[in-house]
Design a binder for these strands. Sequence first.
DNA 1: AACAAAATGATAGACGTCAATCATTTCTAG
DNA 2: CTAGAAATGATTGACGTCTATCATTTTGTT
Lengths: 359, 359
Amino acid sequence: MRCIDQFKSAAIKNPTLTDVARTAGVSYATADRVANERGNVAQKSVQKVKEAMTQLGYVRNVAAANLSTNRIYRFAFLIPGGKNAFFKRMRLHLQRVSDVMMADRVHIEVIDTDAFKSASLFEGLQQVVASNADGVAVVGLSTSNLEKPLNALRAQGVPVVGLVSDLPTHQRDAYIGINNKVAGRTAGRLIGLSHAGLPGAVALLAGSLKAQDHCDRLMGCREVLEADFPNVELLPTAFTFDDQQKVHDAAVEALASNDRITALYNVGAGNIGLLKALESTARPARFFCLVHELVSHTRTALVNKQIDVVIDQRPDVEINRAMTYLQALVDNRDIPPMQEHVPTIYVRDNVPSDIPETD
Amino acid sequence: MRCIDQFKSAAIKNPTLTDVARTAGVSYATADRVANERGNVAQKSVQKVKEAMTQLGYVRNVAAANLSTNRIYRFAFLIPGGKNAFFKRMRLHLQRVSDVMMADRVHIEVIDTDAFKSASLFEGLQQVVASNADGVAVVGLSTSNLEKPLNALRAQGVPVVGLVSDLPTHQRDAYIGINNKVAGRTAGRLIGLSHAGLPGAVALLAGSLKAQDHCDRLMGCREVLEADFPNVELLPTAFTFDDQQKVHDAAVEALASNDRITALYNVGAGNIGLLKALESTARPARFFCLVHELVSHTRTALVNKQIDVVIDQRPDVEINRAMTYLQALVDNRDIPPMQEHVPTIYVRDNVPSDIPETD
DNA sequence: AACAAAATGATAGACGTCAATCATTTCTAG
DNA sequence: CTAGAAATGATTGACGTCTATCATTTTGTT
């Protein structure tokens, strides 16, 4: 953009620190002292060098710098292990990206954590502290206190990025994830729209009120329906602890007990159970079904018209963003401009065809 | 992932070509000849070197390579100029990204083309051919024949990426953009869902049948409604040539003439005219309004409940992807894994808050 | 003016790759 | 067996930055 004139001419050359030193009228050593803040430089020299930098549009050549220091980026990702399809998808993407990132000297280690055990997270983090990583991304747990290891990391200058579930603001450098209240509101909006003003009743399934994200989603959904769709009644939430069997039973019960039911929204996980319930149970004539997270089985159900909408968090995008953030933080660079990460809505027509099998 | 063991130990080092040569039992020169395909190497040597590479997990250090060749990436983006808010947003993102990319030695030139003039595109491309860019991204035009300049570029080894509107498959290396039939189907699905089985009629506005993307969207929308929502009638399409005034008039007429109208879908541009019409005209009790492309005014209208859904192409994501593709193509690298780019659905709750003003 | 302290200059090796050159060895055909 | 071709080895400078050392100049203090 700023370089159209140069661009046209055959040879473009970025100014080097030597160029800066020359136009500033100082030696390379001094320019270097200024650039790398090594101190022992007179104010007026600092001034001269900085002016030369802006004048020439000097940009530090990160590649050369990394080469000279033999820089390698070692990033650790702490992600819940186990059978959860969403995190499986996340780990799969991480693995794929990892191969490509090798060329950029980015090494990735994935540490499986126990999804709901605070101790496991704590232990994983301590492992990272010891492994002298350059950056860490953590899927946190709102109930666990990770202050000590996180502060230890950040005291070492290791940036920490919260992933999917936020950490206390002062314990991390950035948060990459959706706003779950927004996700809930989005669900509420779509449920409301699907009623076209007709009366209806929504069955709600959630894991537990202890999960902050589930709470937020429920709240968002309720907010929108109460404000904009008084024709839609909210039935009491059933809690499933994200267990497939419990989800199944709750869905069957909801469908059977209330013949006014027109919509079902599962705020949490365990959708396989829900799908089984939908297969075996008669569905009302008017029925709108909405779940979270696009994985192979929810995708199939979407295409097969068992469910109508999937709200997805785009774990691949989140991983990419985490990586970008970590690199920028480590290099002390500007973070590239990126649009706010919001929940994605999939209906059966805009669903990507390349969702990997994770089962 | 593959390097957990190394990761744990304090010092990690990527193998260099010297290491490869050593374990292959050949000189650096020979290893280099293999790595850079310079020829004049015996088959068995090639074999030995390649084996050593896979054995050690050698990955070419792109940073060092680019440093030694003084590589600079010069990418040209041919994007329609003028007042169109969507392309304004695209150019704005390009500009922002450009600043950050300077650190990676990526220079970006944006060439404004005349949105609908084939000659302008042709001229712009010839300009690029002359400017010896390293890669080109073009917003094409289905009606124009760009075979000559495109082939000239690709003959020079300059990768060409089609953006937003596809080019003939054999004339480009990749296409970055949404599938417009999918976009239309998505619109149709949402319109259908919004009727909850009640009867309705959809007013359709489009620019012109000459625009391939508009055709595709109309077709997709019709497909879904006819197949899955027989209760929704499709009214004849009004053609607006993407002119605000014509869009306004068509919308007013549609709302006035047909009291059964329950939805309006503008397949094309000129939404400012539509918004004016919605402000001044009485809307039916049941009314679902859907448009394309999130820009400041459509975002405002979404939040203010004038429209219900915006289907967006995510120009920022498209730009980023184009950049990634071009870099990978130039470096002859693998393209990082990325999920299929599909149209994004925005309702007023999941709409990003940081859409820049482009008016 | 003398002296220490602060600032500056000059320079060199390392990082991994590319792109050369030139000498030497090995292979192949007649 | 030998000339010529093909293959290989050895080596070098450049790219831009970092890090270090050491010599020299300038500054400020008494």
